[in-house]
Design a protein around this nucleic acid. Sequence first.
DNA 1: ACCTGAACACCGTTCAAGT
DNA 2: ACCTGAACACCGTTCAAGT
Lengths: 222, 222
Amino acid sequence: MANAERLDRERVIKAAVELLDSDGLDALSTRRLGTVLNSSPNVMYWHVGSMENLVGLATDQVFAELTLAIEGASWRDDLAQTARDLRLLFSRHPWLTEAFSTHPRIHGPAIVRFQNHLLQVCSRAGFEGFDLDWAGASVFTQVLGDAWGRTPSPMPKDRTTTPTEIVEQVRGDLADYPLLLERYEALANADPGTVDEASFEFGLTVLLDGLQARLNQRPPAP
Amino acid sequence: MANAERLDRERVIKAAVELLDSDGLDALSTRRLGTVLNSSPNVMYWHVGSMENLVGLATDQVFAELTLAIEGASWRDDLAQTARDLRLLFSRHPWLTEAFSTHPRIHGPAIVRFQNHLLQVCSRAGFEGFDLDWAGASVFTQVLGDAWGRTPSPMPKDRTTTPTEIVEQVRGDLADYPLLLERYEALANADPGTVDEASFEFGLTVLLDGLQARLNQRPPAP
DNA sequence: ACCTGAACACCGTTCAAGT
DNA sequence: ACCTGAACACCGTTCAAGT
């Protein structure tokens, strides 16, 4: 099975990202990748070394999609913009949450560039020293946690269970917790898109207000 | 290979948690579990149905360790206490981050009880409606993100790489980002335990201040 | 009711061998 | 330098068969 063009690292990564975007992290296997590339079940090893490495390269690849513009507005606007862009990245590539949790030490040029951007924005805000690291990390964490909460259970054609059905299933477990049951029902009856959006903005506002409070305690040098 | 005592659901889950605690999520396989239980490679199927289900049951099992006491102090203290307890749970069972990200829809009595506790504390603080859900979720997200950032790369005996060596390895990638390099070095030279603690407390304070700011905008009814 | 053995369809990775 | 074939040591899951 000779393929039309010669393979290289870039084409392998591109095929990996396509597989990940369409079918998720589990779908990325050495053998499926070989099939997609019209090649042998283990082509990737020459080009990227290992599965773990390939996931890291694919992650770095999609991080390159981020614009990371500094608009010149307030640090609040810059940080909010960064968080919203990152959120969109995670929604375009839902496998990112799983990739980060199973391979926690991913790094690469685009990720490093993103980390630096976060630090720059937080630095402008007035953070220094370790506060700088922690402020940046809190933004990333916020988006990661938001995306995690939004990850749909992977049930491809499993008779798409409606929210109402889910509530029925857990109603027994919730018998002792009327407040929790009330919230489950409220969420089941709300429009998912609207709730997702508002939920993210709630978290973002809380985060920015919290950072602001921290800055107010340590006012900038005159 | 007859085993001394009869198996039941509880013993299977207990063995699973021990395997997870000692060797991580990857170590939990049907065959290893069978070996540990002095039984066949597929014993678990009769008792828990599937691997996915077993991970959920193990997660719920460890969530039962949480005390979830309401101290009667301020909502801030209660929420901080809950977050710190949850953090300790994640550090006792480092596989939890991966479990939540690979099986996002885990639920069970102990988890439901924890969710209810979060809602109760947030409700006392003055949150209502969807704000209640989002406030609770932000606490869980905060701890999850903190634990994620702390997950050590699983390199068992891989010549424990020192932080300084890591900095050397990425120094090339960081050439264009002096601020980022400076932060890497500062973190490499700091005591990990102290930094972890301070990092968590920073995030927690930011979160609580942010929630407080939200409450101030919507003062409680008189 | 509970457990075993064998099988199916997969994995990641290595390595000698090909071109 | 790049790719293939075959093999090794694993997976989760099913199912007929045992007790």
